[in-house]
Design a protein around this nucleic acid. Structure first.
Ligand SMILES: NC(=O)c1ccc[n+]([C@@H]2O[C@H](COP(=O)([O-])OP(=O)(O)OC[C@H]3O[C@@H](n4cnc5c(N)ncnc54)[C@H](O)[C@@H]3O)[C@@H](O)[C@H]2O)c1
Ligand SMILES: NC(=O)c1ccc[n+]([C@@H]2O[C@H](COP(=O)([O-])OP(=O)(O)OC[C@H]3O[C@@H](n4cnc5c(N)ncnc54)[C@H](O)[C@@H]3O)[C@@H](O)[C@H]2O)c1
Lengths: 211, 211
DNA sequence: CGTTTTTTGTGAATGAAATAACAATTTTTT
DNA sequence: AAAAAATTGTTATTTCATTCACAAAAAACG
């Protein structure tokens, strides 16, 4: 694997580059400079050049980057050719919204199975995705070779769910609950704490804003 | 203002500390050490002590921190006494979920007004919150003294909406669209890019996971 | 009451990421 | 074809964040 010691911060920006490059290609743009990219994605141009340089010399001095070539290159790095199957646990408020959105148009992932305990929705199809009983979790995860799960259950059952996902063989969890999950360290947890995002924003504008 | 040069990273952790302290207090715990906190919130104990130390000496050597005192202290810093009114623009999939959740039980904010262009929901009440026409944006923002907005509209109208919010006097935006908004720099934008979170997670497990 | 244990607060060390600055190279212009 | 302009790739520098490590202080114990 070429991309071995890519900074984590760089990795987080890759999908953003990719998405914008796709946009550029669709609009017929053939070349782009780090400065133009910078305007769009709002990272410093030097940061962008440095990010790209981890993968080799992708641009041409005095010219910039070839949009199509760059997009193709990042597409491969991001595995855009293979569609990842993802599970969603907890088809409530937020789970429903994610199910319905389903990422497919905008990424290489799709939610393939959902799980809940509510008998009203278990064994129904929601937004085109089958909702299974939590009892079927292990079986479905294994059968469908799912290795990433989105967790949108109430906080008090999150740790339980995480443990079951872990033993079922999941390798990554996108955790929307405010709880910090305890899982084997071979499993990657990405926390999305929406309440925290809002509270942090409020803190900043209350303490450092103008007015 | 005491808290002037608090690292951004610290600020992002404050609501997490606060939330956990509340939990501890509810469970009747009277004292806590940085190590215990570390177990719960999964930040290094030294990081926690350093974070706290920006606000002075809040603990007692050989004892730890007094849960109630610490909670009260952070509550003030986070303005827990005043309820912030927030606007939500775009009552779709995700907007609906946020409306329904509404943060009130878990934080010092509540969504006070929502906006959309869809005539089916304009001038209705959704999850207890009035949905106004986008035409009323400026008036409502001003009248209700709203200074933070959550943006959950389609990407192609996000920049327009952001501009209107900016001129309406909003000081912070929680942006759920994949677009990086252009706003005056006095306005703080917090991006929540869910597709990116998922893609980054996939990238990491595909490239650095075991198996 | 003295000794041991616990735990903070912080200086110093380390690590990670962002930015600046510029030579090297290519393109564009005249 | 020479001069000017654009733009990369990278080295050096700066900024920001985490972690180590330990003296200082308080608590617990015997
Ligand atoms: N909705 C939001 O806007 C929002 C914002 C911030 C945080 N969150 C967090 O996201 C999580 C989900 O929030 P929500 O508003 O969608 O909650 P919700 O109550 O609407 O949905 C939870 C769903 O999980 C299901 N469930 C309960 N126990 C389960 C189990 N053991 N296994 C599988 N499914 C189970 C419930 O039946 C329900 O359908 C919560 O932890 C919440 O704190 C949500
Ligand atoms: N839903 C998700 O899970 C999810 C995931 C990742 C990203 N996003 C992003 O979040 C945003 C919202 O997603 P969604 O799934 O809720 O979309 P959606 O289409 O369900 O909802 C968008 C809402 O905005 C309204 N709207 C359109 N133009 C408007 C305008 N000018 N002013 C006010 N309202 C307007 C529409 O009527 C609709 O109600 C999108 O930018 C999407 O890319 C959503």
């Amino acid at each position: 694997m070429v991309e071995h010691d890519i900074p984590r911060a760089t990795a987080k920006r890759l999908p953003i580059y990719y998405r914008y490059l796709k946009l550029l290609l669709d609009s017929g743009t053939v070349r782009v400079s780090s400065n133009e990219l910078s305007d769009a994605v709002k990272f410093d141009a030097a940061t962008i050049r440095r990010d790209f340089s981890y993968f080799g010399a992708l641009g041409k001095r005095g010219y910039g980057y070839d949009v199509e070539a760059l997009m193709t290159f990042f597409g491969e790095i991001l595995n855009q050719d293979t569609l990842a199957s993802v599970a969603l646990v907890g088809v409530g408020n937020l789970g429903q919204a994610l199910l319905n959105f389903n990422f497919h148009q905008s990424s290489n992932a799709r939610i393939a199975a959902a799980f809940d305990v509510n008998p009203d929705i278990v064994n129904t199809i929601q937004s085109g995705i089958p909702v299974y009983s939590l009892d079927d979790l292990e079986k479905q995860i294994t059968d469908q070779r799912i290795d990433v799960a989105i967790v949108t259950v109430p906080a008090d059952v999150a740790q339980d769910v995480a443990k079951r996902l872990a033993t079922a063989g999941v390798r990554g969890i996108l955790n929307f609950t405010p709880l910090r999950l305890d899982v084997p360290k071979s499993i990657r947890v990405q926390n999305v704490d929406l309440t925290n995002e809002l509270q942090t924003l409020l803190y900043f504008i209350n303490n450092f804003g103008e007015k």
